[in-house]
Amino acid sequence: MKTKILPFIFISLFFFVFLIFYKGLKNPNIYTPNLKIEKNIPIFKAQIFQKEKLISSEEIFKQDKFYLFNIWASWCIPCREEHIFLTQLSKQEKINIVGLNYKDKDENAKKFLSELGNPYDIILSDKNGILAIEWGAYGVPESFLVYDNKIVKKIIGPINEKSFLEFINLLK
């Protein structure tokens, strides 16, 4: 009796561990953030781009309106790709585009805008990147669709045609 239980325990333990490792092997080991969470936007005060004035989040984000909070920088190459979509979105009346200039030099940012056009209704300046962290951002470019002071959708990386069409559908 004794001799039969021990191998049984060993084998079941082996299978148990094997199963866990096998399952773990299939899991992606790259971090995939949760994109479908409705979270309140952070309350903050930020400097307006190229101005000394501070503006609070309550003044920017009003209820009953869509806002696209877009984090960008002149040194970020994918930001150039998504710029065309931002320009098209800015023509929509139902949405306001709020830009966050991330760790950028004012001069370069200005050049970037005069080169590609300015789709933003308001631009905030984030010189040390703290505000982006408060929004839960990873880097540039990153966009948050905000409605009723809640983050409805989050796009990490540049806006592409697919996400652009999703926005247009949501705005209808």
């Binding site: 790259i30 040390n128 990147g129 703290i130 962290i133 990873y138 880097g139």
Partner: peptide, 26 residues
């Protein structure tokens, strides 16, 4: 450090990690 694999914020020198260090300080 979420954007660099296998590194802590303390060890990393990425933009994300540097901002996070400033935020912790703040």
């Amino acid at each position: 450090c979420l954007i660099c694999q296998g590194q802590s914020v303390h060890d990393s020198d990425s933009e994300f990690a540097n901002s996070l260090k400033l935020l912790v300080d703040k």
